[in-house]
Amino acid sequence: MDAAAKTRIYSSFEAQSMMATLGAKLSEVSHGVVRIEAPILPGALQQQGFGHAGLTFSIGDSAAGYAALTSLPLGMEVVTAEIKINLIAPARGDGLIAIGKLIKPGKRLCVVTSEVFAIENGQEKLIAILQGTMVPVPV
C-alpha cells in the first residue's frame, strides 16, 4: 500500500468518535488486513464483568471495514451492509485485538471477516468471529 492509501485509513479511523470513546487504536494497516487494539475499560463491561459484546462487535466491524477499504481507490469509503458475529468465549482480560481481513474485493460489495482476541496475562484467546459485507461509497 502506498502512503496516501494508509493516510486515508488512519484519517478515517481518527474521525470515528466511537473508536476514541472505546480507546481503540489502529496497530496495523496493510493490503487486505487491518488490526485494531482496544483496552477493556471499566465503562465497557457487561453485568458479569467481562468486556461487553458491543466492544467486541465495534472493533471487529471497524477492522473488517478498513480491511475492505485497503482495496478501494482514494475518494471511496465503505459502510457496513450486514455483518454477523459469533461470540465464542467471554472477553476476559485487559484488552482486545481485532484482525479484519478482506476475503473478496469488489466495486459494489466487499466480503470481509474479523477475528477478535482477548488478551489475558499476555495470552491471546479467540473470542469472536465476524463475517460481513461492506458497500463502497464515494466520500
Results as ranks from 00 to 15, higher is better:
residue 25 K to N: 07
residue 52 H to R: 11
residue 61 D to A: 05
residue 75 G to N: 06
residue 124 E to Y: 10
residue 89 A to R: 13
residue 124 E to I: 06
residue 94 D to K: 11
residue 16 Q to Y: 12
residue 84 K to V: 03
residue 117 F to A: 11
residue 2 D to H: 08
residue 104 K to R: 12
residue 114 S to C: 07
residue 65 G to V: 00
residue 85 I to P: 08
residue 47 Q to M: 12
residue 64 A to P: 05
residue 17 S to N: 12
residue 61 D to Y: 00
residue 102 L to F: 09
residue 104 K to W: 03
residue 126 L to H: 15
residue 82 E to Y: 02
residue 108 R to C: 09
residue 92 R to H: 07
residue 22 L to W: 03
residue 51 G to W: 05
residue 84 K to S: 15
residue 135 V to H: 04
residue 139 V to Y: 15
residue 84 K to P: 04
residue 19 M to D: 12
residue 104 K to V: 00
residue 73 P to K: 04
residue 67 A to L: 04
residue 24 A to F: 10
residue 60 G to F: 05
residue 25 K to M: 02
residue 122 G to A: 09
residue 61 D to R: 02
residue 18 M to A: 13
residue 39 P to K: 09
residue 52 H to Q: 15
residue 14 E to H: 03
residue 63 A to D: 01
residue 29 V to E: 11
residue 127 I to H: 11
residue 109 L to S: 11
residue 129 I to H: 10
residue 12 S to R: 07
residue 25 K to D: 08
residue 13 F to K: 03
residue 24 A to K: 07
residue 136 P to G: 00
residue 17 S to L: 07
residue 108 R to K: 15
residue 136 P to N: 06
residue 1 M to C: 14
residue 37 E to R: 06
residue 138 P to G: 05
residue 42 P to V: 00
residue 114 S to D: 11
residue 17 S to R: 12
residue 3 A to I: 10
residue 9 I to M: 03
residue 124 E to V: 05
residue 94 D to I: 00
residue 83 I to R: 05
residue 47 Q to R: 14
residue 48 Q to V: 06
residue 129 I to R: 15
residue 43 G to S: 06
residue 93 G to C: 01
residue 57 F to E: 12
residue 38 A to Y: 07
residue 126 L to Q: 13
residue 69 L to G: 03
residue 96 L to A: 08
residue 44 A to R: 01
residue 120 E to V: 04
residue 10 Y to I: 01
residue 65 G to Q: 09
residue 71 S to E: 10
residue 34 V to N: 11
residue 135 V to G: 06
residue 51 G to C: 02
residue 10 Y to E: 14
residue 53 A to M: 01
residue 121 N to H: 15
residue 23 G to D: 11
residue 127 I to R: 08
residue 68 A to W: 06
residue 59 I to H: 09
residue 101 K to G: 04
residue 132 G to F: 02
residue 82 E to D: 03
residue 32 G to R: 04
residue 16 Q to V: 06
residue 34 V to Q: 13
residue 62 S to W: 05
residue 2 D to T: 06
residue 83 I to D: 03
residue 33 V to C: 13
residue 88 I to H: 11
residue 69 L to W: 00
residue 78 V to S: 09
residue 14 E to Q: 11
residue 85 I to E: 14
residue 137 V to H: 12
residue 66 Y to A: 00
residue 3 A to G: 05
residue 52 H to F: 14
residue 46 Q to T: 10
residue 62 S to P: 00
residue 133 T to Y: 02
residue 132 G to W: 10
residue 59 I to C: 01
residue 52 H to M: 08
residue 12 S to T: 08
residue 39 P to I: 02
residue 92 R to W: 04
residue 54 G to T: 14
residue 97 I to A: 09
residue 110 C to F: 15
residue 120 E to T: 09
residue 68 A to Y: 07
residue 138 P to K: 13
